[in-house]
Design a protein around this nucleic acid. Structure first.
Lengths: 344, 344
DNA sequence: TGGCTAATGGAAACCGGTGTCATTGACAAG
DNA sequence: CTTGTCAATGACACCGGTTTCCATTAGCCA
């Protein structure tokens, strides 16, 4: 117990020869201060190494400086990207990030979240997909009086509460690219049921086929759940088809890696025998052999923007009124997993 | 501003007809209470949905319930595993996890950390490798009076402050396995300079060669920095050697993936032409083709144990005196990237 | 000289808990 | 019947800030 007796606001006031109220004014950048006094107090604060007690502040202000990140996303890389983007926005502010994974599908999920929000009285939360797609969750935040911003693959809330990517259009473009290369039998590996992102990506895929007037038999659509293993299973079903698809669009990279894996096991050469496109552009895409053509999902930028939205109007640095961009565009990254179909 | 007027301890006291101090006693499970009163108060708490304000508690107790995770680890999967292990330990307690990435190599790293610890007055921090290997960081925690537990690849602190894996022995065993398969020219891809894990793994590698009386020319050792790209560079140097090594031990999976990538680019078949072993057993190891033989690093368990150590003796659930295990053993996971050398 | 405003101080209450110490009542011992 | 002890509980200050409500001082202008 080395009782690190930190200086309090009273110490600063005493040394600076002002009242604690004035020190408080300095800390909170009140405009009613002579530059003279301000400088003197700031000097003393620096000398003493005074740091206001965040707990005391939180208590008095009825607000803390904790931002929650709520996720139930199985992809480690995606979560890390979001954390990184968030922390970028929070760096230099007084906010800290508190991470809360949720157990998707658990019956107590909503209660867990409520408990988390109520106990900690967070300043706000950032909702990552797929929880973010759950309207009940957003309503819960509202009812508790906790700010929130949702991230998603389509706009499903007001600009104030939402940061979205346009997955549908991005996938449409990617699929169109495959069609442009000459592919006609293109398989689709879906994301999990109930995921908005899965739905948007499917719609984009269908948009492209429709525009090119290509029929999409049910058999070319395989279920998946965003995991590597589900990609293998899906690919095996698709590759058993006669005639075989010449290309596969996978709703994320992880499953695309599974597709590549399964194709290789049957001795198929990518891209000669099969073209593959993924989605996300996680590191795995670049590490695969051949490097995977995919759609870059700007999730880190989205998270950064979402965090800025969350803290907008508080403290000094964030500006209150500038509308952060709400819609992010995903772009096609062409690597080596796509070629014109060999046979036709 | 829906002013969610939450009930306070005073409300509970009034309704239950007791003093707020008694309510406080109930909350903190004081033994000096008649079962009668306790039950009554607990009933009122439940009825009102009362939740103690953590900020007020933190202020009065001069301690908050935030555990920091400090890391400067470039590997997303590793960080996520640690977070998961930590959260497992924290789940159901009143502690929350606050994540703080540090910019390794940055001159202000130490100041950033100090600032973080001092501002938030964290209850404690979990230090992940490689920051955890920095003694100055541990001293900083000490001087600030912040509990800490370090995770590392070798014991470098007292049991109270340390959770370690025995990388050296694990790598020795993995290398011995390669030797047992008949390999004599084995390349080593190092981890970054200054990383304790890199050093331990190198030592284990050398131990095995020494025990088998195999010389280790300097040329078989290639630098790396735990990234995929550095694995490629290292492999290219190693594979240019004449005669070529028949096996490569890579100090982590990420680089092993790079090695596999580079080998494939030269048309080498794994494991026929080259055996590869990695370290970590991140998902990438199983997704590679062929699936990578590697050493499973029980980082999530380590993190869980470290977190339990951190909060031991606080509140009701964690027990104060049970010594959490401090040393974790890594195990060899045999998959398909190792075979006997083809030519000899 | 008087009145008005800006800059600051002082006292006290408050945020919502916890610590210290005093008080109360019951019961066993003397 | 008194006294001592102990369990159960309450009164009140305190943690370290913010806020309210003045009071005070100084500077400026008419």
């Amino acid at each position: 117990m080395q009782k690190t007796n930190r200086p309090t606001i009273n110490d600063v006031a005493r040394v600076a020869g002002v009242s604690k109220k004035t020190v408080s004014r300095v800390i909170n950048r009140s405009p009613l201060l002579s530059g003279d006094t301000r400088e003197r107090v700031e000097q003393v604060i620096a000398d003493l190494g005074y740091i206001p007690n965040p707990q005391a502040r939180a208590l008095a202000l009825r607000r803390n400086y904790l931002i929650g990140l709520v996720h139930d996303n199985p992809n480690a890389q995606t979560v890390m990207n979001v954390q990184q983007g968030m922390l970028e926005a929070l760096y230099g502010t007084e906010f800290e990030m508190v991470v809360r994974p949720l157990n998707r599908g658990s019956a107590t999920m909503l209660d867990d979240l409520r408990h988390f929000l109520e106990r900690q009285r967070l300043f706000g939360v950032l909702l990552m997909p797929p929880v973010s797609e759950n309207d009940t969750v957003a309503e819960l935040c509202d009812s508790i009086g906790c700010r929130y911003v949702r991230m998603g693959s389509a706009a499903l809330d007001t600009a104030e509460h939402m940061v979205a990517s346009n997955d549908r259009e991005a996938v449409r473009a990617a699929t169109q690219y495959l069609i442009g290369e000459g592919h006609r039998r293109i398989g689709l590996v879906l994301g999990p049921h109930g995921f908005r992102s899965a739905r948007e990506r499917r719609l984009g895929f269908e948009d492209a086929l429709k525009a090119a007037d290509i029929a999409l038999p049910r058999s070319l659509i395989a279920d998946g759940n965003y995991t590597f293993e589900s990609g293998i299973v899906a690919a095996e079903r698709l590759l058993d088809l006669m005639p075989r698809p010449t290309a596969i669009f996978s709703s994320n990279d992880e499953m695309a890696a599974g597709v590549v894996h399964a194709a290789r096991q049957r001795g198929l050469d990518i891209p000669r025998d099969l073209s593959v496109i993924g989605f996300d552009d996680t590191p795995i895409a670049g590490h695969l052999w051949p490097p995977l053509t995919t759609v870059r999902w700007p999730i880190a930028s989205m998270a950064r923007s979402a965090a800025l939205k969350l803290i907008a109007g508080v403290g000094d640095n964030p500006e209150p009124e500038v509308r952060e961009p709400s819609m992010f565009l995903s772009t096609l990254i062409r690597r080596a997993s796509v070629a014109a179909p060999g046979d036709g």
